[in-house]
Amino acid sequence: MLKFDETTYTRIIDSLHDGLYFVAVDRTITYWNKAAERITGYAAEEVVGRSCADNILCHVDREGCTLCLGRCPLADTIEDCVEREAEVFLHHKRGQRIPVLVRVCPLRDAQGKVIGGIEMFTDLTSIEANNQRIKELERLALLDGLTQLANRVYLEREINARLHEYDRFALPFGILFMDLDHFKRFNDSYGHDVGDTVLQAVAQTLMANSRPFDLYGRWGGEEFVGVIRTVTAADLEQLAERMRLLVQQNFLVHGSEKLQVTMSVGGTSVCPGDTLESIIKRADKLLYTSKQGGRNRVTLG
């Protein structure tokens, strides 16, 4: 069995990433590690020998209740010997509040008598920031940057999920493939900034008028796709016509002009044996039929 001297133990404790401190039974702080200094801003010489009850760290809970002056987890653990864990907010020396996860346990002597307590605390600031960054990266990976609709990756994932659902439970769904008419000509005439504003307006129209369980996204360029759940062919046509009309009725004031665009739509319902490629290809061909038929119309099949 390895045996360490006091200096080695101190070095090990000071190398911990988490803050750690010991208190006596009366909650006088007897040890304060390097991570505790880093997380709180208080050097060991500023706190060792003082009592937690001096409210040095000013722990508060999520309701804003002060813990250090009353029944804090550490004091309770010293009294009943029950280990505890809690999320609290400590006061940093510079004034800000730091969210920390505290874990407390009783400190015993060789005979098992409680002679104080140990508290370890983890700074949750970086953890929360990392979680937020991960969520943001996930969001960016699945959303179109311009329109904030689902992007192609997200749409393909959704369609595959609906195909799997259809294969298992025979739940129907439909696809709407939508394309703005003569949009290149529009961009050439008014510029890409105006074109981007129009794309955003169309996206907002689709999103604002969709059912909560349907998904609309940007397939690319001026193309949009709707994944319409639990829908009959008649309902799919009605939804497609409504979206087409709503886009047609949109307008953007540009100088003295009122700019409008129209949208052609191809719609199809899932069929046995469909794959992502087959259902998209079918909807795309129906969209092409709408374009060939004069644009600003819906073709289903």
Rank of each mutant, 00 (worst) to 15 (best):
A86K: 13
E241Q: 13
L74I: 12
V23G: 02
R50Q: 05
M178Q: 10
G226F: 01
R94T: 14
S51C: 10
R71V: 13
V198C: 03
R157T: 14
T125M: 06
A283P: 10
A150V: 04
G95R: 10
T147V: 06
D14P: 03
L171H: 11
E46G: 02
K258I: 11
D14L: 07
A43I: 12
A150Q: 03
H192A: 03
R162I: 00
A201D: 03
C105R: 15
G301F: 03
L67S: 01
C105S: 15
V153P: 01
M178P: 02
E156D: 15
I134E: 13
N55K: 14
S189R: 15
H254S: 12
R38M: 12
N151T: 05
L199W: 00
T275R: 14
L300A: 01
E119G: 13
T30Q: 12
G95I: 09
L146V: 04
T8P: 09
S264D: 05
F173Y: 11
V48F: 02
S264M: 09
E37N: 11
I134F: 10
G95V: 10
H17C: 03
R157Q: 15
G117I: 07
A110N: 12
F213S: 14
L163N: 00
P172Q: 09
L67I: 07
H182E: 11
H17V: 08
R162K: 07
L300D: 02
R168C: 07
I115F: 05
D188P: 00
P73L: 08
T40I: 12
R282S: 10
D76G: 06
E165T: 07
R282I: 14
V100S: 01
